[in-house]
């Protein structure tokens, strides 16, 4: 990453000293101006917010929330901040289930974090039975807060470590999950400073544990699944491990063109075939 020269910072700060604080973390003057505009609109203490941002604290932790679809998701330390990629596929998924014939599906959201995906699905499908599971106590507390904040009821919240817990899995029509998917070496290499310093490693670093867990445990209890991925190799891993005769597996790209989701459904299910038609491209 190229260095931002002190002269550049001085120049930007001459318009507004706060912009000078934001520039090193936002990288461009335009982005800094935009961010200052958002901070001002939020009505928080602007100077305090900019000082925190100068120390690379994520904006969502500073302001305390992140919009997610039509929801406002509260964000706190020790819980991963929802990403736009997740918002994108979750919204699309919710819209597809909304128009489908299945009006009251059973949905399980694993590694729920802030609970964003579970809440979005519950908002879109009020009659769905949604269960949100996470192993972190911080996440569980935040999900409960978010339910209250968005005025959503009847979501079951469970604290469970799905990799180690041997209680039976829950039968579902849909299993969604945004698992940690950054391999250890990529964590050091690719992850930005702000994420490394302030977001929980528990929600970021893992190799293929959760995809193995999907294939070995959850597949037997569900009709379809949608898992976020960081790398296409994770999608191929799932596709290779799944029985090709009973499951259709596909990959969906985000609007940046990167493979972002691996999804699957029972091949003989006509409803689901229609529902997932065009969600991504099938690889199996």
């Amino acid at each position: 990453m190229p260095r931002i020269s002190p002269a550049m910072i001085r120049k930007v700060a001459s318009y507004d000293p706060l912009l000078g604080l934001l520039l090193p973390v936002c990288r461009t003057a335009e982005a800094a101006r935009q961010e200052l505009h958002w901070i001002r609109n939020e009505g928080a203490s602007v100077q305090r917010a900019c000082a925190l941002r100068a120390r690379s604290v994520p904006l969502q932790y500073v302001l305390g929330s992140q919009p997610f679809g039509e929801l406002e998701i509260l964000c706190k330390r020790n819980v991963l901040i929802p990403r736009w990629e997740t918002e994108e596929w979750a919204s699309e998924l919710a819209a597809r289930w909304q128009t489908s014939r299945v009006t009251a599906p059973t949905v399980v959201d694993l590694c729920t974090g802030t609970g964003c995906v579970a809440l979005l699905l519950k908002r879109a499908l009020p009659r769905a039975q949604v269960t949100a599971i996470d192993c972190s106590p911080f996440a569980i507390a935040l999900v409960t807060k978010n339910l209250h904040h968005n005025d959503i009821r009847d979501v079951t919240v469970l604290q469970r470590d799905i990799l180690r817990d041997d209680r039976p899995a829950i039968a579902a029509d849909l299993v969604v999950c945004n698992p940690p998917y950054i391999p250890r070496d990529a964590f050091v290499r690719d992850v930005t400073t702000s994420v490394k310093m302030y977001e929980p490693r528990l929600a970021l670093v893992a190799d293929k544990e959760f995809y193995t867990n999907l294939c070995d445990v959850w597949l037997r209890h569900t009709r379809s699944f949608v898992y976020e991925i960081g790398d296409i190799s994770q999608a191929h891993f799932v596709a290779d491990r799944i029985s090709a005769t009973t499951w259709s597996v596909g990959i969906r790209r985000d609007s940046n063109g990167k493979p972002r989701v691996v999804y699957g459904f029972k091949t003989d299910d006509v409803q689901l075939n229609k529902l997932y038609d065009g969600f991504g491209y099938l690889v199996r």
């Binding site: 994520p58 992850v191 930005t192 994420v195 940046n256």
Partner: peptide, 15 residues
């Protein structure tokens, strides 16, 4: 969303 570079959990873009 500003084209190249890492995405997903690796970066936290608000825009």
């Amino acid at each position: 969303h500003g084209g190249r570079g890492p995405g997903g959990q690796k970066i936290n873009k608000c825009n």
